[in-house]
Amino acid sequence: MRPLKVLATVVLFSLLSACSWLGGEKEVAPDVPEQQLYDEALSALEADNYGLAIEKLQLLEARYPFGRYSEQAQLELIYAYFRNYEPVSARAAADRFIRLHPNHDNIDYAYYLKGLTAFEEDRSFFEKYLPLDVSQRDPGAALDSFESFSALLNRYPQSEYAPDAQKRMQYLKNRLATHEIHVAAYYMKREAWVAAANRGRYVVENLQETPAVPDALAIMAEAYTELGMHDLAKNSMDVLSLNYPEYQVRPFKKARATLTQTATFGLLGGAEPAEPARPIPAADRMRADAQKRADDNAQQQERSLFDRMTFGVFEDENNAAK
């Protein structure tokens, strides 16, 4: 037994020595003062080096969890995750800050960043520069963003971030309403009248003052007619006619194929079902208004030059004819 114990001892020492030779012992990073770590993190944020900023802020929170910069570092970490395109980590950091510091002076900033992260999460490169209809996509991130902005406005209406959050909520409201109409139109084509009517009623009751409301009323009227609920159908149509007199009613359900459609494989012989309205983005509206003002100014300058060249003779004749 004694030779066996000696052999076991030799093998154990050999293994320990091998671990040290292979770098088993790691060098411990020297302690960095809290102020220095925080300054380095801020410098990285100012230089748009968000990866380095995240590393410094995480190290600061790990080594000085109760330091004077701990709470501020958690806020800066949310922003760094957001700018580094890490939405999952940004939302998790925001939730953690809200849970740990419910009475913090800057908790409204955490709510705002959480909503902004979800707002930008599903906006791809192509959606920013191409006119894609994002309302047909899954609205999960839009719902999360809407809820975060809503919590911010309800709890901190005087926050400096409230005006921007309110504008973004209006955009999200339009998008969510249009998504509901897309789903309702799908149900109409599948003759699921009850589901379509419920989607339309949800828009009318909960998402008012959106471009999708007239489509919702039209869907409700058509779905209730198919269900034989003529009183509800008439009420929906009366509300639609009273509030949107210029709305052109078209059927949302899929028409049965005619003989001409069958013979031409659907190319001729029938009208397509109505398509839901698409909310016009604010950037497109501003661009259209600016173009209209430019065209009006150009036309006014052209008329003024013509008046000067003709000494106002033709302008006077035009005014007299009017």
Rank of each mutant, 00 (worst) to 15 (best):
S17L: 15
S124T: 08
H104L: 04
S236G: 08
Q300S: 12
V313C: 06
P139N: 05
L259C: 09
Q248P: 11
E209S: 12
P211Q: 02
T258P: 05
A151I: 11
D316H: 13
D48K: 09
A80E: 00
A8G: 07
Y186C: 03
P131K: 04
F126M: 11
I280S: 08
E180L: 13
A221T: 09
T9I: 14
A223M: 11
D164N: 12
P251S: 10
L227W: 04
G140F: 07
P279R: 06
Q35N: 10
R201F: 09
S145I: 03
V313S: 07
E222N: 07
E27A: 14
P139Q: 08
K167E: 14
A90I: 02
E226A: 12
Q170Y: 13
A118N: 05
Y112K: 04
N198A: 11
V10G: 08
V10Y: 06
M220D: 05
P139T: 04
S20D: 15
E160G: 10
L75Q: 06
R137K: 09
Q248W: 07
E180P: 01
A271I: 02
N154S: 13
Y38D: 03
A255D: 08
Y244H: 14
A271S: 10
A212W: 03
A298P: 02
Q170T: 10
K234Q: 15
P33R: 13
R137V: 04
V28G: 08
I78C: 01
Y186R: 13
L59G: 02
P65H: 04
A92M: 09
D48H: 13
D215L: 06
A8W: 10
A195E: 00
A142L: 06
Y112N: 05
Q158W: 07
E246V: 13
V249R: 14
P251W: 03
R63P: 00
A18L: 15
S124D: 09
G312E: 04
A283Q: 12
I78Y: 01
L113G: 01
L22Q: 08
T178G: 15
I181T: 06
L152V: 05
M309H: 07
Y187W: 09
Y224C: 04
L153V: 09
I181W: 01
H182P: 01
L37F: 00
Q35Y: 06
D316V: 12
L37V: 00
R199N: 03
K322I: 12
A283L: 09
V204K: 05
Y244C: 09
E205W: 03
E55D: 12
A320Q: 15
A94Q: 03
N174L: 01
P214N: 07
A141C: 01
R168P: 02
E246F: 07
F149H: 01
L232Y: 14
Q300E: 11
Y156C: 04
R250F: 11
T225F: 12
N235I: 10
S159L: 06
Y81R: 03
L113R: 04
R168F: 04
Y244V: 07
S43Y: 00
P33Y: 02
V28K: 15
H104I: 04
A192L: 13
M237F: 13
F146T: 05
A184Q: 03
R168W: 02
S150Q: 14
E226Y: 13
V28I: 13
L116H: 03
L113I: 07
R175D: 13
T260E: 11
M286Y: 08
L7C: 11
P139Y: 02
S14F: 15
V203E: 01
A18K: 05
F311S: 12
R287Q: 10
C19V: 11
Y171A: 15
V6K: 07
